[in-house]
Design a protein around this nucleic acid. Sequence first.
RNA 1: GGCGGCGUACCCAAGUGGCUAAGGGAGAGGUCUGCAAAACCUUUAUGCAGCGGUUCAAAUCCGCUCGCCGCCUCCA
Length: 484
Amino acid sequence: MKVYNTLTGEKEDFIPLAEGRVNMYVCGVTVYDHCHIGHARSAIVFDIIQRYLKYKGLDVKFVRNFTDIDDKIINRAKKEGIPWNEVARKYTEEFYRDMDRLGVARADIEPKATEHIGEIIGIVKGLIDKGYAYESEGSVYFSVNKFAEYGKLSKRDKEDMIAGARVDIDERKRDPMDFALWKASKEGEPSWESPWGTGRPGWHIECSAMSIKHLGETFDIHGGGADLIFPHHENEIAQSEAFTGRPFVKYWVHNGFITIDKEKMSKSLGNFFTIKEVLNKYDPEVVRYFLLATHYRSPIEFSDEQLKEAEVSIDRYYTTLARIADFLSRAETAAKPAAAEKAFEVFVNLFKDKFHTAMDDDFNTALALGNIFELIREVNRFLDANPSGQQANELVSRAKELLSEAGKVFNIFNRTPEEWQAVLMKTKEIHLTEKDILDKISQREEARKRKDWAAADAIRKELDEKGVILEDKKEGTVWKIKAG
RNA sequence: GGCGGCGUACCCAAGUGGCUAAGGGAGAGGUCUGCAAAACCUUUAUGCAGCGGUUCAAAUCCGCUCGCCGCCUCCA
């Protein structure tokens, strides 16, 4: 298995520190507002990585934190006129609401910054003792110059950054690049007792404290959005390695952004859609598919068109699944020679390897989805050949199992075709009941018996305009909701 | 300005040295059908931003040019 490591800038063989075990930490969210679709991408990317590693039989310990104390939370509390911890509680709940809908699994451990103040203070003290940090007016700063390897993750050197001259000048800092480990609290702000007076943790230190506590001083994977590379993850490395004297993380994994009109979606630009807004129009499965159809490190342009295509793709899956169910329910045992059988068997046998190869190559979900649709085509092609007999049934059953297994890793494709129709009915806002549709179908049946094609076609057209498609089969007419 | 990334068909998107450049959508033609739909088949990049170079061999490596984006400030 290969994983792209931001630290080395290369795809590397993935070799866990302890055989068969993977410790991974992913930066979660600061709970001060509703999440947007960019947060969803990060959550889904690491959800799939985590699921795939577990699927491969690795013993994964997955930690995803909540930043529940921070300037933004404090500001939000002022704005809403509620206590800061109420803001954190409220948006933690909203986070779970969104993630549950998106099918993002809970992490094995979900620590909060405020529950690790003791550990944070311990590390800050340790850093002062070792000469990496200093106290100034009740705050504590990390001295970047003391850490020789500073910049190794984001590939920049201190001189360049200072030349960039966008670092904030703060008189309390000895060097403009230094960053806060502990912030002295102002009157009325949330605070905790510390050796340097009352204050609260800086942003970066919490992740060091929580990851080290739950995963040890060195662990396998640390993930997050690419915008965290600098300064957040760079600072985490500096603090952690200065404190423990050991390498902090073996593989740094970062997901790309979601863009709108080619620009990064962000709160400050205001060009974002919340998860809730998107889920009003599209089913979570569609959103997951949309995000997985592009490699996790590439940017994804957010667009209605692409979401609709994702919906059509998923519809193709369920249409095939319905065909499979139909075929299996007929289960003819009398074997009829099917020329296509051998070729189909070869294809079915190859699928799992192809799926694994794709996912083993830096979690190439886009390629894996391509493999899935190749299998879908082969299934349809095989069914078109009107196969029969036990061998054919077994092959089709196996194909169905394989699709379902792959779907499990992505946490998509796990409904029945009927459930999928219900989903479309809801998201497409079809204002017809099943009875309405069935009545129309029987009216059309009458017309068809009379060979009154004009009347029959008029009914079909009427339903089509309302988003319902009719399919005439030998056994009768079935209906489905138009996807896309 | 510094550092990093991207540019593959009408659209989206895999592919980072070597078999016919995955897959999805859209279009065209066909099989099936009363007609459709679904499904399948055929078709749509002798070419991967452009120009050079390395190599027996390049979308894939190197250089330059053009265009777009990201990070350097909170940010998934």
